[in-house]
Write a protein that binds this DNA or RNA. Structure first.
Lengths: 351, 351
DNA sequence: TTGAAAGCGCTAACAT
DNA sequence: ATGTTAGCGCTTTCAA
């Protein structure tokens, strides 16, 4: 029994479209690439021909023919955040691949906790690049800055944390509400029924970060609905800073001698691990955190952390670039390949 | 603060190599593509030039220039296995993408439980294709058949279940020992400490399937080491058939009134779900299975299954094709992108 | 054993 | 507003 990928009728190419529309190659190219200087009726004819023939440009040919690379700016939070460092590392490994896609990347670090600084930086990018990939803050000023770039014809992709009300072309990242729900499911089940009146600590970077707020929301939903015997304490804000997170967890451990679990929504894992280890209660307390940074990996192997919810940094960067490229050159891509999964690591399935 | 992808000195191209080696484009091409008819000393010169210049062919150019597509056979188990159906579905969605990679795929279904049938089928593929992707059985006859294909110059990629002693070019799939360990970690923690003398059922397709045997091994390792208060019962063999798995689980439930958990290593989930639901004990028994088939998804949503260990079928097929293509055309790829992750789904992070 | 030259299917300058 | 044409960097005949 067997089955072949349909070879069917030869795939249509540009010359077929030109012939069907009764125009030249150049005109078809103009229409397809949205360049001006074509009569409306001609545009319609070409579109009709494209439709009828099911034309799709061969990416190999167009990449080869296209002379210059398109320029993409990647805007990331400044600071010591290990996950951001992983994203940067990924970009640096993508050099040859980007070249083959006819893309050039440049990374900018800006203070992401300040909407003004971020908005100003985005504004400065206008006209300097063809696309911008930004891991940012969902704030009205930032949203306006993104919309300005879009109006200027640039392609904007949000990364990790979305700005949904903006006109960005794509969001690349996980569903953070679902991630929070997943954390709650694991935490609840790991703590178990026997922790009769267990109390659960929550630590986030800031309520102002959309991804963190969404995770918290999802977490609380499931804790209230399915693990109601556990008490979720008010969320602490550690500003993704290991010094502050360590201090906060130390205090928490002191105030809560019966603490059963911790969900840390943002960064600063090294501080949390330090506080837990110093307390001697690391093995009794279930700790779930985000992103497989070197510290989180270490904590997982040592049994200090119990599960890590993650998003694949390499996948995200590749996806963001592919989406930008596809839009800039109106190529199609496999939607399936661009869906970022909510990953779960326990000690045993670490890569 | 910012950083750019090094534009550095223009990437070397074929003409640079030809010039450096003092030969023509055609000769460089002959050397690079391992075609005969080039003096050994010339070959050496060309290799030296390639080395010195760090030459890498531009995939866009070579795909465009290459006239015909390479032919790839995909050999999958016949039967009703839903995961195999997912693989087939993925291949069918990859038509345009394969065309752009200059690949043509053809799927063959064979009885994978019979080494002879599989080996004979593989032998029949010799010379018919340039590459073979096979989800198979690790058996001496199959291994010999794979080696014959490799000797004939074909590229063989094993999928899902490896044949490590063969000369296959690549294995695309998860680390099944680690997958079994992951299942044990989750099962042990979900069952919890309170199931004092809990007993755990295990159901696999067959001891003869390498992936199943590896999962069982990993599972038993961790159960014995970290959840020693639980008793793992001898593994039942359901031959990946829902009718048999349902029967086996019905009997198991009858014999083990205190059953605390089930790990199902292979296929036949619909039978297991049916037996669990019929027993009325679905909510008390922790069940962990593999692959997000429609039945597994349903069971997870209903709370009948507690976690699903999975491998992304689309990722695996794309990876297998990319690896075959890269080897056939000696392109490089991003190793990172081809690593198949051991995924974990709970109800909340379902896609 | 080697080289010259004609494409592959697009893009983009340059004409008209 | 539209057409002509010269590449892009490879592969692959066909000649020498």
């Amino acid at each position: 029994m067997n089955e072949e990928t349909s070879i069917s009728s030869r795939r249509a190419q540009l010359s077929d479209v030109a012939e069907a529309a009764g125009v030249s190659l150049a005109t078809v190219d103009r229409v397809l690439n949205g360049r001006a200087g074509v009569r409306a009726s001609t545009v319609a004819q070409v579109h009709a021909a494209v439709q009828k023939l099911g034309y799709r440009a061969d990416p190999a040919a167009s990449r080869l023919a296209r002379g210059k690379s398109r320029s993409v700016a990647v805007v990331l939070p400044a600071g010591t955040n290990s996950f951001v460092a992983m994203l940067v590392e990924q970009v640096s490994q993508l050099g040859a691949w980007l070249h083959e896609l006819r893309l050039t990347a440049r990374i900018d670090w800006v203070d992401v906790f300040s909407p003004d600084v971020l908005a100003r930086h985005l504004a400065s990018l206008r006209g300097q690049h063809e696309a911008v990939i930004v891991m940012g803050l969902d704030h009205p000023r930032v949203r306006a800055a993104i919309d300005d770039l879009c109006d200027a014809g640039m392609t904007v992709v949000t990364l990790v944390s979305d700005v949904p009300a903006s006109r960005r072309a794509h969001y690349v990242g996980i569903d953070n509400v679902a991630a929070g729900r997943t954390a709650a499911t694991l935490l609840g089940r790991f703590v178990g029924r026997n922790a009769a009146a267990g109390r659960i600590g929550v630590l986030m970077g800031s309520h102002g970060l959309r991804d963190h707020a969404e995770r918290l929301f999802g977490f609380q939903q499931v804790m209230a609905g399915e693990h109601a015997h556990l008490t979720v304490l008010p969320a602490l804000q550690g500003h993704d800073d290991p010094v502050r997170t360590e201090q906060l967890i130390r205090e928490l451990l002191q105030q809560e001698p019966q603490l059963a679990g911790i969900y840390s929504i943002g960064a600063g894992n090294r501080g949390i691990a330090a506080a837990l280890e110093a307390s001697g209660r690391a093995q009794q307390i279930v700790w779930i955190c985000h992103e497989l940074t070197p510290h989180a990996r270490r904590a997982l192997l040592d049994g200090v952390a119990d599960a890590v919810i993650y998003q694949d940094a390499g996948h995200e960067m590749r996806s963001a670039f592919r989406l930008a490229q596809a839009r800039l050159n109106r190529e199609t891509l496999l939607a399936d390949q661009e869906r970022i999964r909510i990953g779960v690591y326990v000690k045993e399935n670490l890569p």
